[in-house]
Amino acid sequence: MSVRVLLVEDSRAMRAYVSAILEAHEFEVEEAENGFEALRMLPREHFDVVVADVNMPDVNGIELTRFVRRGPRQAEIAVLVISTDAAAHDVERAMTAGANGFLPKPFTEQQLLEAIANARSRVQASA
């Protein structure tokens, strides 16, 4: 069974970029363009990985991380946050809220795949 990824990112091109990489590597990707859409999808669908931009309007990536960590299957979902490294404070809080990894923008295909693999291995190790 392929790995299901929920990609939460408000930039359309960024979503297209990340989706294209992940789909090329046999991930099954669902896209949410804002936090609310993600909130709607999270409880209803099964995801193995959540890739979220930290800095989004309304519901930010930290809140989304906390939401995942409080939900059912909280320990099984790997959360990878992406952000520019300028937002160090935000990334730190996302990690405190339970994110399993951080990927600074911009990133390459290889970096993205590695970051997802690392985040997943952390989840599996702790599970």
Binding site: G35, P43, F67
Partner: peptide, 15 residues
Amino acid sequence: ITYLPSADASAEDRI
């Protein structure tokens, strides 16, 4: 200022 979601709603199809 922000929206804080929580999953501990009374029903599973609500947020």
